[in-house]
Design a protein around this nucleic acid. Structure first.
Lengths: 228, 228
DNA sequence: GACGAATTAGACAAGACTGTCTAAAAAGTT
DNA sequence: AACTTTTTAGACAGTCTTGTCTAATTCGTC
C-alpha cells in the first residue's frame, strides 16, 4: 500500500491495443473482486495476455489500478458531457424532451458499463484512496451539475421552468432519475427498456410538478381542485 | 469462496459481549478493507481479542462476514422502523414536521454508522453474494418504502398531500433526502448539523412543491404569478 | 478454593499472490 | 534477412493469510 509514494501512471509502452485490453480486463476484475481480491493472473488471462506483459505496461498493481480509474473517469466524463449536449434547448414538449434526456443520461452514464464500474470503484476505494478520484471529483459530477444547472437556468429564464436554485434543481433531477435504478443496480440486475422509460417518465413528472412553469402548475392545480 | 455450501451462522457460544465486540470490529474492518482485504488478525486486534477466539465464535471468515451482515441488517431495520414511528400523523406544520422526520431518518439510518456500513457492504459484495442480503432486501427498503408510502397515503387521504402513487412518492422522498449526502458519504466526509438540516429542508421543500396539497400549490403559484 | 468453560499466545502447515528474472519465441521494422 | 522491440511461459523467492493445534492462563460459578 504505497499509493502515496508512486501514484503515477506508467508512460505508454508496447502495443496500445494490448494496453487498452489490459485496462478493460483489469477494470472488470477490480470491480468484481475489489482491489485486494483482484488477481493479476486473472487480469492477464481475461485480457488474453501474459502476466509479464501486464507488469511491463503498468508496473505495479497499484499503478494498474490508478490507470484503470483514470481511464474510466475520462471516458465517463466524456460521455456525460456528450449527453449533456443533447439537452433540449427550445423544447416543444418539455416533459417528453426531458424524459428522453433522462433516459439517455441513464443509458450512457449511470447505467452503462463505465459508469457502473466507476461507481463501484469509488464506493469500494473512495474512502481509502480519495486522491485517486480527485480528477473525478474535480471534473466529474461537479461540472455535470453545473452544466445541467446552466441549462435549467436557461429554460427558467425562457419561462419554461420555475427554478430559484438551478444547482439544487440539477442535483435533485439526477437523484429523481436514479430512484428506481439504484437497488437493481446494487445486485447487478437489469431493467428492461420499458421499465427504464417508465422510470424516467415518473422522475420527470415529479420534477415538473415541483419546478414546472408556475402558471401551468397553477392552472393544472386549479383544474383538479375544481373537479374535486 | 464457498458461501453456497455453508452460509449459516454459528450458534452463539462463549461470552456474548465478546461475540458482539468481534462483530463490531469485523464490520469496521470489512467496510474499510473489503472482504478479500480484511484480515482476521486485524479484526481480533481491533476487538481486543485473540485470533482463536474469533474462530471459536464465528468459525469461518465467511461465516463471520455473514454474521456481520445479519447483525447490521437487523439493527438497521429496527432503527428505520423506530424512526418511521415518529412520522407526523396530524401535522400542524407539515413542512417543518417532514423536515424533522427527514433529518431523523438521515441521522439514524442513512448517515449513522450501521447504515453506512450496510450500504458499503452491499455495494462491495451485493453483486457477488446476493444471498447474504436477501433478508435486507426482503425486510429492508421494501418494507420501509411501504410503511412510508402508507403514511403518505394517510396524509393524502386527510388532505395534507396530493399523491397519486404513494409508493413512488416514498421512494422519491428518500431520494431527495439523500441528494446532498451521497458524495460526501463516498469519501467519508461529514456534514455539520446545520448543513444536514438545510439539506433536509431543501428536500422537503421540493417534495412539497411536487406533492403538496393541490389547492395550496395553486394558491401559492397564483400569488407568485400575480406578483410577476 | 475448586472446577469447567472460555480465552490466550504462539507455533505451524498449506496455500495464494506479488513482483522479478530468464531464455525462448513472436512481431515489427528497415 | 538482420535487427530490435515486445511478448511469452515458467520458475522463483518472499510475503502474507487462513485455519488448526497445543499448552498455559484466565474467567465465571458453585
Amino acid at each position: 500500500m504505497k499509493f502515496r509514494t508512486s501514484p503515477d501512471i506508467l508512460p505508454p509502452r508496447g502495443h496500445p491495443a494490448k494496453r487498452q485490453s489490459i485496462i478493460d480486463a483489469a477494470a472488470a476484475v477490480f470491480c468484481r473482486e475489489g482491489f485486494a481480491g483482484a488477481n493479476i493472473d486473472l487480469v492477464a488471462a481475461e485480457a488474453g495476455v501474459s502476466r509479464q506483459t501486464v507488469y511491463n505496461h503498468h508496473g505495479d498493481k497499484e499503478k494498474l489500478f490508478a490507470a484503470v480509474v483514470a481511464d474510466i473517469t475520462e471516458r465517463c466524463n466524456a460521455r456525460a458531457f456528450s449527453v449533456l449536449s443533447t439537452f433540449p434547448d427550445n423544447p416543444e414538449d418539455l416533459e417528453a424532451d426531458l424524459t428522453v434526456f433522462a433516459m439517455r443520461l441513464n443509458k450512457s452514464c449511470i447505467w452503462g458499463r463505465d459508469g457502473r464500474f466507476l461507481a463501484k470503484l469509488i464506493h469500494a476505494e473512495g474512502e481509502r484512496h480519495p486522491e485517486l478520484f480527485e480528477t473525478w471529483r474535480r471534473e466529474g459530477p461537479g461540472r455535470v451539475w453545473s452544466a445541467l444547472a446552466a441549462r435549467f437556468a436557461r429554460l427558467a429564464f425562457a419561462g419554461h421552468l420555475d427554478i430559484d436554485d438551478p444547482d439544487l434543481a440539477a442535483r435533485q433531477f439526477l437523484a429523481l432519475v436514479n430512484v428506481d435504478l439504484h437497488i437493481p443496480w446494487l445486485f447487478g440486475e437489469t431493467l428492461s427498456e420499458e421499465e427504464q422509460a417508465a422510470s424516467a417518465a415518473r422522475a420527470v413528472r415529479t420534477f415538473l410538478r415541483a419546478y414546472g412553469r408556475k402558471c401551468e402548475v397553477a392552472a393544472n392545480a386549479l383544474e383538479e381542485v375544481h373537479e374535486a
